[in-house]
Write a protein that binds this DNA or RNA. Structure first.
Lengths: 252, 252
DNA sequence: CGCGTGACCAGTTTCGAAATCTGGTCACGC
DNA sequence: GCGTGACCAGATTTCGAAACTGGTCACGCG
């Protein structure tokens, strides 16, 4: 049990340094000093520096994913794109590592070696796939607009998210002061652009005819619960992928 | 007439080089060579290198603004945020200088001297003000949603635009292939998030009670034409500002 | 006389080699 | 057997010298 706790301390120290100094300036020596272990010990846990810092990022992402899952389990409405992205956005702001990843992106990602870059690219491709399947599921259940091609819808989602994330750094001056307000604006944008509008329908009838035999839900609430059954496994899969990837970077 | 044509050639050469090499690598010597004038001649036209390159950017922006105005004069619907941003986006993609400004932004803007930075910051602040007044005008005429604070609405507009602009560089892989499709997705996003929804209303009744004595328009068409009367001067003002700024950078 | 020019200057950037630092290893010893 | 830090090769930083570049201006051509 000594071992795991030590690894944890190393990850913690690496995370702090990554946020405070940026990738370029972080040194293994300093990480070891902060974690109060010998330098060699760091290499008993991770193959390379990149593997360690990748693990830091993966852990932050995994935490965010975990929170996401908890929210969705607690309230099926959280599977709606607007709600989901709202949560993601707030987690992103609260998690310094993830924020640094976007704010400093050149600094943080520019110096990764090719292996780590490939891992990260794979992770993003994987997440891309998950997002696409997620949108397809919601479409089946009449929970997102169907007047746009799924891939286009995904592009809209990604672009808008990129915009609000980048705005944190670029439009900092003119931005509404509280993260919650910004999150709400982001959510409202996604809701009107991606979520299936329900108000107009009296929140009763849902969406278009579900293809491929998905049973037609009567109320939005029912559709949400039904869709959640299909969405949760996707997120669990994403979580699993991250965990597996993190394990792959370990020694032993 | 010799003079103006010469200045034009210099601007042209500077623009080409800016796009091809990025700000850092552009040299006055090379600009002069390409424009087939002596180096000193460049300084007969502009006070400094930064003034010249700022002029290149301002001219590109001015061209975009000019096209915008032409579109709005031709069709009042072009004043709607979704339409306006769509045009802006396409111009942006078509104008290499503007595109380079976003793609390379660190490279292009990072090296400007303090004076040029201040000018640019002022320009952006000015445009910010214009955008705000533009939204206020449209609101008066019931052409944009009123369920959001104007400043928040502006933030949504800027963030979303930032996202679609950055996506050009960041999401290049997964992006729909034609600029027009991307422009349409952008426009659709803005439309649903910012434009006043009209379909549901049968495109007849318009918006909320106009305050401050603006006469209540009966149809969307009428509202558009009325709003255009107030919007055009704003854009002309922006154009004027750019022209003035450009003149300020000249010799004599 | 006036406009365009390129040699010229000062300040900045680039270059290159020496010096320093850092990721990663491994023989040691607790 | 696990943790450690001295150690090594390769990468990065440093720093003075060399090269370049923005900007000026005395010249001379028309």
């Amino acid at each position: 049990m000594e071992r795991a706790e030590r690894g944890e301390r190393i990850l913690e120290a690496a995370g702090e340094l990554l946020v405070a100094w940026g990738y370029r300036r972080v040194t293994i020596d300093e990480i070891a000093r902060r974690a109060a272990v010998g330098k060699g010990t760091v290499y008993l846990h991770w193959k390379t520096k990149d593997a360690l810092l990748l693990a830091v990022v993966l852990r932050a992402k995994s935490r965010s994913l975990h929170a996401q899952l908890a929210r969705m389990r607690a309230d099926p409405r959280e599977i709606l794109p607007s709600r989901m992205m709202r949560g993601y956005y707030l987690d992103f702001l609260a998690e310094p590592v993830l924020r640094a990843l976007y704010t400093d992106d050149v600094d943080v990602l520019g110096r990764l070696n090719d292996v780590a870059k490939k891992e990260l690219a794979e992770l993003m491709a994987f997440n891309d796939g998950i997002l696409l399947r997620y949108l397809a599921v919601l479409r089946e259940h009449g929970l997102v607009r169907t007047d746009i091609d799924v891939r286009h819808q995904q592009y809209v989602l990604m672009s808008t998210a990129t915009g609000f994330f980048m705005a944190e750094a670029m439009l900092a001056d003119h931005a509404p002061d509280t993260p919650e307000v910004r999150a709400d604006l982001f959510a409202a944008t996604i809701r009107s652009a991606v979520d299936m509008p329900v108000e107009g329908f009296g929140a009763r009838a849902v969406g278009p005819p579900g293809r491929s035999g998905a049973p037609r839900a009567r109320t939005v609430e029912e559709a949400l619960v039904a869709a959640r059954r299909d969405v949760l496994p996707l997120y669990e899969q994403a979580e699993e992928y991250g965990a597996r990837e993190m394990r792959r970077q370990l020694r032993g």
